[in-house]
Design a protein around this nucleic acid. Structure first.
Lengths: 346, 346
DNA sequence: AACAGCCACTAGAGCGCGCTAGTAGAGCGC
DNA sequence: GCGCTCTACTAGCGCGCTCTAGTGGCTGTT
C-alpha cells in the first residue's frame, strides 16, 4: 500500500515532475518573470538571454502550463466548441474553426456529444475549462437554455436559427438554398419532387418550409410530399425503401442533408434504381463526402469555412465588447450542381 | 451575401465577473475551504451547510473553475485524446472513451488533427492543458517521436502497432481479421481477391502482410494483387475505376477500411456493377456506417468499445504506477458477415 | 474534573503562471 | 557632477482552487 502524503512525496515515479518556469529560470540564472517574457514573446529580454532561456527550456523539457496560464491571465483566450463526432459537416467546421481561432490568437477546446453526454453536459465541461466563449455546432437544445447560457457567456450557434435568445447565430439562408434546388429540378423538367425531412435537426424546419413554398410557387402544390427522416444515413435508407415500395417513384428527391442523401442513394442503387437516370438526388451541406468524385452529389453548399470564420469572429467580437446586440449572420446558400441530378426519365 | 438582422437587444450584459468560491463562502458565511469540501463531495460538512452552500452557489451561478482546480490538485485527472474528425471509427472510439473515462473519474480533452494541425501540434496542445496521459487514435508519427512523448507522459496508441517505443498500444489482431475475411471469401468460391491498400494508415502494413500470407496459404499466390490506396472514400473510388477499366474484374475486394469500401461500392454501383452479385466487398473497422441496413457491409469488426476501454484503463493504470512495462494489447478481430459478400458469379 | 474522541469548520500555504511597479546600470547632453 | 531616457531585468502579488494541519465545541467515559 502506497501512501502519498505531503506535496513533497511525489508520485511513485521515475518520471520527474514536470519542470516549471522557476526551474528554467534557475537553470539560466535569471528571474521567473524574464522567462515568462520570453515565452510570451514580449519585448524586454535581450536576444542572448532569450536564446539561453529557450535553450534551457528545451533541455529541461519545459512546456508552459496552460492551466496556470489561464488562471493567471485575466483572459483565457480559449474558445469552447461543441461537436457531434458523427457529423461530417462538423468535421469541416472544426477544421476551419481551428484555423481562424489560431489566426486571432485563440485556442480551441473541443467537447463532443455522446450517448451519455447531452448538450448540457458538454457545455458544462467547456465552461469548466474556462472557455471564454462557446461555439455550438448544430445544437438541439431549447432556446431558453441557449439564452441562459448566452447570458453569462458569449455564445454562437452555428447552423441553426435562434430567434431572440440573446445569442449570436450563424447559418445559411436555408430558403434560398432549397429554393435554388427546387428551381434547378423544375428547370430540368421534374415535377414529382419529394423532400426527406431532417426531423428536429438544425435548419430542418426552415428547409421544410422553404420546400413547400418553392413547390407552391411552381404550381406544384399537389406534388408536395415530405417523408419523415433525420440527419443520418439510416433515414435516407428508410426513405429509399419507402419510395421503392411505392406505386410510383418520384423523379427527384431533396434530402435533408448529405448523410441522408448518401443513405438514400445506397438504398436506391442496391434496388437497381439508377441515379440520376431514373431519379435525381439533391443533398444539403456539401460536406466533404459530397465532393468525392463518384458520389459527386448535387447539393446545397454551406460554406463551412466561411461559417466557421464568422462564428469565431462573432465570438471574439463579443468578447471584446460584450454589449454588442445579439445578431444573426445569414450566409447565402448556393446550389452546387454535380452528377446526381438530370432530366427525369422520359 | 451577408445579412444581418435586427437584434433583440435582450442582452443587458452586466456580465459580471464569474463568481468564485470566495463569493459563495461569503454569501453563506463560511470559509472557502468548506465550500471546496462541498463541491468535492468530501465528508466534513453537515447536511444543512451543504445545502446552504449549494443553494447559494446556484443563486450566484457559481461554477467550479477547472483551470484552478487542475492547478491546485496534484493530479489533473484529465486524459488527452487526439482524433481525426474525418474518421468515423474515431467517432465510435471517442464516444466509448468518454464513457470509460467518466467511470474512472477522469475528464477527457479532445484535440483534432487538421490541415494546419499536425500530430505534434495536437500533442503539444493537449500537454499544455495538463493532460496526465495521452490517447492517440491512429497516429502516423514515427516511433521515435511517440517514444519521446511516451517518455514524459503515459501514452496509449490506438489502432496501430508500435514496437518497443515505450508506449502502450491497443490494436486488433489484423492478421486474424484479414485471415478470416480471406477464408470466408475463399469458402464462398472466390479466387480473384484483390486487396486495396491502406497506405501508411494505422494497421495497413499488417493487413497487407496478412492478406498476402492468407492468399498464399490458400494456394492463391498468383492471384495476389494489391491496389494502392489509403483510408479515405476517395481511394476506394479510384480503386473502383482502376478495376472497372481492367480486362477482367476480380470477384472480390478486401478494402483497406470501411471508408475505402464505401467509396469502392459507390464507384461500382454507378458503373452498373452489382454488389454482391457481380463482386463481393469486405471492409475493415465495422464503423457505424457499415451497420446501416442497406449498406450492410461485410467487414472486420474492431470492437471500438473494448478498444476504448482498454486504452483508457491502460492509461490510468500507468498513471497509478508508471513503472509498468509498456505493453501491447491485441484484441481479436472478428469478421462480421453481412450483405456485401456472396458466391462469385458463375 | 480531566481527558480522549469526534465532528464541523478554518487558516493559510501553495499550484504555475501573468503582470504591475519598480530597480540597476548604461549612455548622453549639459 | 546632475538629470534624463532607455534597456534589461526583478520582486511579489494574485488568479481560484486544493489540501494539510490545525481549532473549538460537544459528548461520553473514567
Amino acid at each position: 500500500m502506497l501512501e502519498q502524503t505531503g506535496s513533497s512525496a511525489t508520485r511513485v515515479s521515475t518520471r520527474t515532475k514536470r519542470p516549471t518556469m522557476a526551474d528554467v529560470a534557475a537553470q539560466v540564472g535569471v528571474s521567473r518573470a524574464l522567462v515568462s517574457l520570453v515565452f510570451r514573446n514580449e519585448p524586454g529580454a535581450s536576444k542572448e538571454t532569450r536564446d539561453r532561456v529557450l535553450r534551457a527550456a528545451d533541455e529541461l523539457g519545459y512546456r508552459p502550463d496552460n492551466a496556470a496560464r489561464l488562471l493567471a491571465r485575466n483572459r483565457s483566450m480559449v474558445l469552447g466548441v461543441m461537436i457531434n463526432v458523427r457529423n461530417a459537416f462538423h468535421a469541416d467546421l472544426v477544421e476551419a474553426i481551428y484555423v481562424e481561432a489560431e489566426r486571432l490568437g485563440y485556442e480551441v477546446l473541443l467537447s463532443a456529444l455522446g450517448p451519455a453526454r447531452n448538450e448540457r453536459k458538454v457545455v458544462e465541461a467547456l465552461l469548466g475549462h474556462r472557455c471564454e466563449a462557446l461555439i455550438l455546432l448544430g445544437p438541439n437544445a431549447e432556446a431558453e437554455y441557449l439564452a441562459e447560457v448566452g447570458e453569462h457567456t458569449p455564445t454562437v450557434v452555428v447552423g441553426r436559427r435562434v430567434s431572440g435568445a440573446g445569442v449570436d447565430s450563424v447559418h445559411t439562408a436555408e430558403n434560398k438554398g432549397i429554393r435554388q434546388a427546387v428551381d434547378h429540378l423544375v428547370g430540368l423538367g421534374h415535377r414529382a419532387i419529394v423532400h426527406i425531412d431532417g426531423g428536429n435537426g438544425p435548419g430542418s424546419a426552415e428547409r421544410r418550409r422553404a420546400y413547400r413554398a418553392a413547390m407552391r410557387e411552381h404550381g406544384l402544390e399537389k406534388e408536395i410530399r415530405v417523408l419523415p427522416g433525420d440527419h443520418t444515413e439510416e433515414s435516407g435508407v428508410k426513405a429509399g425503401e419507402t419510395l421503392r415500395h411505392d406505386h410510383q417513384l418520384p423523379t427527384a428527391v431533396l434530402a435533408g442533408n448529405d448523410r441522408c442523401a448518401m443513405g438514400l442513394m445506397h438504398a436506391l442503387s442496391r434496388a437497381g434504381v439508377n441515379v440520376p437516370k431514373d431519379i435525381s438526388v439533391v443533398g444539403y451541406d456539401d460536406s466533404h463526402i459530397a465532393h468525392l468524385s463518384h458520389i459527386d452529389l448535387t447539393t446545397v453548399r454551406q460554406d463551412a469555412e466561411q461559417m466557421a470564420q464568422l462564428a469565431v469572429r462573432s465570438a471574439v467580437e463579443r468578447l471584446d465588447d460584450n454589449r454588442l446586440p445579439s445578431r444573426e449572420l445569414i450566409l447565402d446558400a448556393r446550389l452546387v450542381v454535380r452528377g446526381t441530378t438530370a432530366p427525369p426519365p422520359a
